[in-house]
Design a protein around this nucleic acid. Structure first.
Lengths: 155, 155
DNA sequence: GTTGAAAAACGCGGAGT
DNA sequence: ACTCCGCGTTTTTCAAC
């Protein structure tokens, strides 16, 4: 889908604050409400905007500690991967999960209240799945975290 | 702030879909609209819900490649850190940025269209800041990504 | 793309259980 | 503390231009 400058501006605004009303968005892009509303609908239908969610303060729900876990494995069969994938999907503390290139096979971001709680997640993770070399790194400080993607590359 | 089972259920629902209307949320938690609406207000005022945003499909805006960058540095002065922090904040391709414990000092998640584009970001990152040992790992596949935090630890 | 208007949902209060 | 009621206001949504 082709995105012009107005679409990008709308996405930029909505990525920051999805509660902005259509009239306000319309003013910011110098349009009236109807075409502005239609553009937003188009962006949703095209799957550019996937969903609209509430963001929660991690510390307020007692998951202020984030842990990055790198995984290496010797098992590379599809069946093994599927099992591992399902295991990870079922653990709500895992908020990000990537298959990597290079010497590390998988990278996970996990949120927990403290290091003790992490031990529990670690056990759930490694229980039943053959994991070769699991390494955990703790984040001391979250300096930047945004769900807003850069729009400079959009065509 | 104290969160009971109903608050947690509301947060769970709103983390998945913030467009749900109050009447619908109220039905799901077996309440009428007024107290449900008030609970949501309370969660916002208390800062549990920080914001409401639109999520965008990375591939649809041409940033389908994510790169993890680990940084080690010899400079540990406050002035140096402030400079580094400001540099990173100004780069929209950097969507996450953590100060780590252990042998790695900083971890960044960066989104770009392709490896060539990453080179540009890399240059902006290292230009002007003394970085000792920068290592980049490319994600081949994003298997899980959620903004929904686990609520099982909330008190 | 614009204007205008119907339909819907929200904001917030009051009285009662 | 929640339910039910409700009305003014705002916002969404769909006409016709």
């Amino acid at each position: 889908m082709k995105l012009d400058a107005i679409d990008r501006k709308l996405l930029e605004l909505l990525q920051q604050d999805a509660t902005l009303q259509v009239a306000e968005l319309a003013a910011q892009v110098h349009l009236s409400t109807t075409p502005c509303w239609r553009r937003i609908q188009r962006l949703k239908e095209a799957g550019v905007i996937t969903r609209q969610v509430a963001l929660v303060d991690p510390r307020k729900v007692n998951v202020g500690v984030t842990v990055f876990v790198t995984v290496r494995t010797s098992q590379h069969t599809p069946a093994w991967f599927e099992h591992f994938r399902a295991t990870v999907q079922a653990i709500p503390e895992v908020v990000e999960f990537y298959r990597m290139s290079g010497d590390i096979d998988y990278l996970l971001r996990i949120v927990v209240p403290d290091i003790q709680a992490y031990d529990g997640v670690y056990k759930r993770l490694t229980d039943g799945t053959q994991l070769h070399d699991v390494s955990s790194s703790f984040a001391m400080e979250e300096i930047k975290f945004t769900t807003a993607l850069p729009l400079g590359y959009a065509s």
